[in-house]
Each structure stands twice: as structure tokens, then as C-alpha cells.
Design a protein around this nucleic acid. Structure first.
Lengths: 165, 165
DNA sequence: TGGGCGTTCTTGGGATAGCATGGGACGGCA
DNA sequence: TGCCGTCCCATGCTATCCCAAGAACGCCCA
């Protein structure tokens, strides 16, 4: 599955087109549908989420789980698959940001692509800045540290099944 | 089987015709009866449900299962298969919305097609908006996040069958 | 260590094809 | 014979494809 890292800010032209960062494209190239990405409005932020075909297949499979309650499934069907837009890139590696999605995220002139491993987000750059400021404050307040997280996770994994990511 | 994604709002003309979104048509093209879709009133919403021949075949087969209790089967037989209307599209990819179905969903001038993977729904756009508002509130209240669902599902799958993503 | 060269990436604009939509004509059924 | 449904044709708009060039970057060579 494709892995998305780092942050890139690209321009959105008059037609609503924007280049997918070259690094992202290289990741996408290895997937089953290299020139197609899927975009949808984030459930939790005023931003867009993006992923490749393979990730969606996994998500789709998750929905088949009988453990998931009907309400939740309905929500996902409506808000993810109902909003999800397959976007194919042109020869130059650009995609057209669908109008309703650009509006949702407040994107007009520039779009910030931020890698989140298996998915990525697309933000209006200023909104992203603000969001990051809030998050950083939380990091400080909660005194979060990376080594602590890794330690905690490996302890948990050992307890459950020994499977780590 | 056809996969339906995204939301499209199309106009209903004076004759009750409405274009099936091109993306949906492309999905339908791969099925066993490309120019026919099946519509029926939703059990849970004031909206229409739609699917292709292949989906109905699967649904039909599910009804043969001895596990299904009689009441449930009876309901499905009555409300789905009893109400179901096969609709064929013209050369331009339009269908005529059956009057009773349009009335049921309150559709007059515009119809919103919303993809739900294996099926789709057809809503009166304002009604859909209202429905989404309710759902979104639930998302916020329950603090649902996508990554959480995927994580939960893959953990469940790992526990049940040892299959991980 | 500095400068020059080449490549890759991003960005821009015009042409083209596809799609949504509207109206009219023909044929069938009542 | 009148009405309704289906088919066919026409059109404006939108999105897609194609071609082109500027800029940044890294690499190589002196």
C-alpha cells in the first residue's frame, strides 16, 4: 500500500487543478490503480482526506464486518462512500479538485498536501497552520513523547498477539 | 459487481426523465444487464434505493437461506421485491422516474444520486441535506473517526481469522 | 569549491470530446 | 383518434486531453 509522508504546498490554477506532489505520485505508482486517487471530506476537520484504491478496499472490507453496528455503517456509507470522489490525474500528475470538496476545505489558491502514511490530507494552508498550532499546544500540555508511545504500543502488542506494524 | 460512489445532483425534466450519473453508467456497463437498473422505496428513509441486476441476484439468493426468519423474509419479499421497478435507460443514459416512486421520495425538480458502493440512493436534494445534517451530528457526538473504524475492524479480523491488512 | 548543465517538477493555456439537458417526432396502446 | 411513452436529434456547458514553457533542484565538471 502507498505511503504518504511530508507536507507539500502546491498552487491551484483557474481550472481547479493542482499537482499531486511527486513523492506521492511515486507511492501511488505502486498501487493497483496508479493514476486514481480518492478524495472525501474529513469527518473531523475542515479538510480533505485522500487515499489510493488499495486503502479503500481495506475500508470497504471493514464495513462488511458484522461487528459494526448499523448506524455506524450507514454513516460511513453516506459520509465516506457517498462523498467519495475518484479523481484521476492527467499526464502531468495533476488532479482537478472537485468544487464541492474545495469549498468544504476552503481551498482557493493553494492546497497543502500532508502525508499521513496510508492516507493524506489536503488543507487550505492557513487552516492547516492554525490546526497545527492547536495540536502542538496539546502535545505540550499532555506531555506527549514519541518514545513513550512506541514503548506503550510494543507492550500492548506483545500482550495481544505479538504482531507489530 | 458495480460500485457506486459520490453524489450527483441531476435535473428531472418535465417528462420525469433524469440522467443517471455517467460514473454510475460506467459501473452498470460491466454488469449483466447494463441498461437496466432496479428501483424501490427505501425501508428506512424517504428515498429510493437502486441497484443492478447482479445485486438483486445476490439478494434473492440470501432470501433462500434457512437462517433468515420468516417474518424478515416476508417483509423483504413484500417491500423490496414487491415494490421493485425495473427501469431501462434510453440512448442518452436517462431513465424515467416512475411516478409513485418520485412521489414517495418527494422528488420533483432535482434528484440526488448518492453512491453507497453496491447500491445507490435517490433523494430529493433538500431532504438529503437534512438527513446528512442529522447524521453529521451523530458523527460528532459519537466521536467517530475513520482510522478508528479501520483499526477496530482489522483487529477484529485478525482475532477472528488471522487475516491482517 | 564554485559554476554550468541537465533533468524533473510545477504551472499555464488552448483544443476537444463527453455529458447533462431540452424539445420534437414517431409509434403503440387505450 | 387521442394520449402517453419511447426514440431521435440538437445544444450549451464542463471536464479532459494535449502541448508548451518557467523555475527549482541536483549533478557533474572544472
Amino acid at each position: 500500500m502507498a505511503v504518504f509522508l511530508s507536507t507539500y504546498v502546491n498552487k491551484v490554477d483557474r481550472k481547479g487543478r493542482v499537482s499531486i506532489p511527486a513523492q506521492f505520485r511515486q507511492s501511488l505508482a505502486k498501487t493497483s490503480a496508479p493514476s486514481t486517487v480518492y478524495l472525501w471530506p474529513s469527518l473531523n476537520h475542515q479538510a480533505l482526506e485522500g487515499a489510493d484504491q488499495d486503502y479503500l478496499d481495506v475500508l470497504s472490507e471493514s464495513l462488511e464486518s458484522p461487528d459494526l453496528d448499523a448506524d455506524e455503517r450507514d454513516m460511513i456509507e453516506t459520509f465516506i462512500f457517498g462523498k467519495l470522489i475518484p479523481v484521476s490525474s492527467d499526464a502531468e500528475g495533476r488532479i482537478v479538485l472537485p468544487k464541492e470538496l474545495a469549498e468544504f476545505a476552503g481551498i482557493t489558491e493553494e492546497a497543502a498536501f500532508i502525508g499521513r502514511r496510508k492516507t493524506f490530507q489536503v488543507w487550505e494552508p492557513e487552516a492547516l497552520k492554525a490546526h497545527e498550532a492547536v495540536l502542538r499546544e496539546q502535545v505540550v500540555r499532555k506531555d506527549i513523547s514519541l518514545s513513550q508511545i512506541v514503548a506503550k504500543a510494543s507492550r500492548g502488542a506483545a500482550g495481544r498477539s505479538g504482531e507489530g506494524a
